[in-house]
Amino acid sequence: MGKRHIRKMLRRMGSGEPVRATTALGTTKGLARLAFYAEQFGYQYANAHQLGNKYVIRVVPASGTAARARAAENWMRYPGAAQGGALPPLDDGAVAVLNARISFELATRFTEKQMLGLTVFGFTGVAIGPWIKFGLLVGGSLWAVLMALIPVLLVANRRYRARNAALLEGAGFTAVTEPDGRPRYLPPAAGRPE
């Protein structure tokens, strides 16, 4: 992740308003690094979502006294951070927790039923081309193989979510269910976004 994205986000944070940010590749690790730097300068991670083919995070101003003190100290120590100066060193542990949180939220944006429907629809669409070009035997065989992969993909997604959930619970995060039924993890009470 380039420092250009960090500096752009830091300049936008000067408005005091919520900020959306993404990286060139939009990886969860890159987004976690952005969220880490936002938290060093008075903001906190709020949520992640997909916009087109990129992932985007939303950071909001932090309201806690510890967050304000950390921001004031970092702005004093790194006054040119938004314009090309030095940045605070990365804390790999904090980035790992943010990465787990972002990954969990992106992995749970659809329920299992929705994921099943989207996967069946997508795999059917993939099999239509070979069916038209090579006939029913090839297209049907491809479709059957793709359908056989669905349970494997669902189990892999459950394990991925469970691994991230375990990391978050170990860091003191609390599992909650949004009104729309989507599970999320909120940080310990002192760092919860409003």
Rank of each mutant, 00 (worst) to 15 (best):
N99Y: 05
G191V: 00
R70W: 10
E112M: 01
R58G: 08
L116W: 03
G93E: 12
L10E: 08
R192N: 07
A175P: 09
W131S: 00
A24S: 14
E39R: 11
I6F: 00
K133M: 11
R182K: 14
V145M: 12
V95N: 01
H5V: 07
L106V: 03
M76P: 00
A82G: 06
Q40V: 11
N74Y: 12
I57P: 00
G30R: 01
L87V: 02
R101K: 03
L51M: 11
A166S: 15
A100R: 04
T65Y: 01
R77D: 10
L167C: 11
P61T: 07
G30D: 13
A175N: 09
T108S: 09
Q83W: 06
R70L: 15
V60A: 07
N99P: 02
P188C: 02
F173D: 15
P151C: 06
G122H: 03
Q40I: 08
R159S: 14
R182E: 06
E194S: 07
I128P: 03
N47D: 14
Y55T: 00
R101W: 07
P179L: 11
A156Q: 15
L118Y: 02
L98W: 01
V95I: 14
L167G: 04
L90E: 13
I132S: 00
A35R: 05
L98P: 01
A190T: 10
M1K: 02
P130Q: 02
G30A: 12
G135P: 06
A67I: 02
A86Y: 01
M147I: 13
L167I: 14
E169W: 04
V19R: 03
A148Q: 07
A96T: 09
R159H: 12
G80W: 01
F121C: 09
G64N: 08
N99T: 02
L90D: 02
A190K: 10
L106Y: 00
V176Q: 15
E169Q: 15
G52E: 07
A86L: 06
A171S: 14
A46Q: 14
R33S: 03
G172C: 14
L31A: 11
R20S: 11
Q44W: 09
P61K: 03
L149F: 11
R7M: 09
P188E: 05
N157G: 12
P183Y: 03
I150P: 08
I102Q: 04
T28R: 10
M147S: 04
S15V: 01
T28V: 15
A38V: 14
P88V: 00
A144K: 09
R192I: 02
R101N: 07
R58P: 05
A72D: 14
V145W: 12
T177Q: 14
L142D: 06
F41P: 04
L90M: 08
G93I: 00
V97M: 01
A66H: 12
P130M: 03
